[in-house]
């Protein structure tokens, strides 16, 4: 039997082993492999026929140059940027307002509305896109019926000028409830005495919300913002699902869709790897930069 000190010395590594093995195999190795592939290319000799005619060689940064100068890459990045500028503020704004309304406790429909608003979290993005996709079809959309009733021709939600908002709406619908619950949980944790004094001094609910509650739940807001940002940059399921219903969504509508097309439709895994690395690096820089910017102690190491 090992002594107490020896037992304790080895134990944490054993506890960490499964996590480290999985981390190495499914996070670190794929990242390393993507970086490696992004620096490689196939050299075709002769007619490219026969064994040995196609060999993999170092490519330097040509794949990155190819990705960045691809005429479809920049528009897809700008599209996701615009999409993020709509989704993140609207979703978190709604989530915060609804959480504050629930927390103020001045309604009898709190439990019902909280459950109803949280419900979309149980609906996968693919299914949500499917449901909204049908609701966007002019023949199904109740909005078209209602507007038609008062003589207005509703715009086609899946036309090229509206499709970005149509996709954004699906993400907002799917994400508001989850973020609301996170913020509501944080609000419920605020000790009452922090704002009871202000209330006795005659502060309104809105003043209490803006001056006391919102600053106190700052760390939760930072975290919801961060996770929303990361989720936004990898939008894939919603536009992929809507494609059969709309001809305005191209195969490179978002950067991740371009990665998919390059890897599996064009069999150009080198370009796909380079684009993946660019997206991953951009996500990391944006989220890390955001954490630095707000000077947050989120993800603190308290010991």
């Amino acid at each position: 039997m090992a002594s107490t000190s020896r037992r304790r010395a080895g134990a944490p590594y054993l506890f960490l082993t499964p996590a480290l093995v999985l981390f190495a195999a499914f996070l670190a190795a794929p990242i390393g492999y993507a970086v490696y592939l992004s620096l490689r290319r196939v050299r075709v000799s002769g007619l490219g026929l026969g064994k040995g005619a196609r060999t993999e060689v170092w490519a330097g940064l040509t794949n990155y140059a190819r990705s960045l100068t691809d005429p479809e890459f920049v528009p897809s990045v700008l599209r996701v940027g615009a999409y993020g500028l709509i989704v993140v503020p609207v979703m978190l704004g709604l989530a915060l307002v609804l959480a504050l309304l629930l927390d103020a406790g001045r309604t009898r429909v709190g439990t019902f509305t909280r459950t109803a608003i949280f419900l979309p979290y149980a609906v996968p993005a693919v299914i949500a896109s499917l449901l909204w996709g049908f609701l966007y079809l002019p023949r199904v959309s109740p909005i078209v019926d209602v507007l038609g009733g008062v003589g207005i021709t509703a715009p086609d939600a899946l036309s090229s000028s509206w499709v970005l908002y149509a996709v954004a709406n699906i993400a907002i619908w799917g994400g508001t409830g989850f973020n609301m619950i996170v913020l509501y949980t944080a609000l419920r944790a605020i000790p009452t005495d922090l704002f009871e004094a202000a209330r006795i001094d005659g502060a309104s609910d809105i003043q209490i919300a803006l001056r006391i509650k919102v600053p106190v739940i700052g760390p939760s807001l930072v975290m919801t913002f961060l996770f929303s940002l990361i989720a936004t940059l990898q939008v894939f399921a919603e536009p992929m699902t809507l494609r059969p219903l709309s001809n305005t969504i191209s195969t490179t509508w978002t950067p991740l869709m371009k990665v998919y097309r390059d890897a599996f439709v064009r069999n150009d895994i080198y370009a796909a790897a380079a684009t993946s690395v660019i997206i991953a690096a951009a996500t990391f820089v944006l989220s890390y930069g955001f954490l630095k910017l707000v000077g947050s102690r989120a993800f603190s190491q308290e010991n």
């Binding site: 996070l27 794929p30 790897a273 993946s276 991953a280 990391f284 989220s287």
Partner: peptide, 15 residues
């Protein structure tokens, strides 16, 4: 936590 897991899907597939 900051690495978007979806981006790993293609290299995970290749490996």
């Amino acid at each position: 936590v900051l690495v978007p897991s979806v981006i790993l899907a293609v290299p995970q597939y290749l490996l």
